[in-house]
């Protein structure tokens, strides 16, 4: 039983770590790119009327929602598996 729980926790770690790294890189690239490439960030992006700086800033908001949702979906799966193990343990 404990082994199964450890397996789930390892899987969770494998899932969470890349997400966390992506989050930090994606977020901190914003201030860094503004500091080091201000001109490029001020140029018009692929969306008319919106510069790269604005586009990147706006993207942080759906990024937050999306990552939160992905984490939530994956966690639901972990919760189900843990529940299964617990039930078996009780039997």
């Amino acid at each position: 039983m404990d082994d199964k729980i450890s397996l789930i926790m390892q899987e969770k770690k494998r899932f969470l770590l890349p997400m966390l790294i992506f989050l930090l890189v994606f977020y901190f690239m914003l201030p860094l790119s503004l500091a080091f490439f201000p001109e490029a960030m001020g140029r018009m992006s692929i969306i008319p009327g919106l510069s790269w700086g604005w586009l990147y800033t706006f993207l942080q908001i759906p990024m937050t929602w999306l990552l939160g949702w992905m984490y939530h979906q994956k966690s639901k799966k972990f919760d189900r598996e843990l529940e299964e193990i617990r039930r078996k343990g009780l039997q």
Binding site: M19, L20, L23, Y27, T57, Q60, I61
Partner: peptide
């Protein structure tokens, strides 16, 4: 202008740090 809006982004993204690492 732009810089004022940047301020609020950090507040928002901080919730993912809470969700991923601390909350549960």
């Amino acid at each position: 202008g732009y810089d004022g809006f940047l301020y609020s982004i950090g507040f928002l993204v901080s919730y993912l740090v809470v969700l991923f690492l601390i909350a549960e």
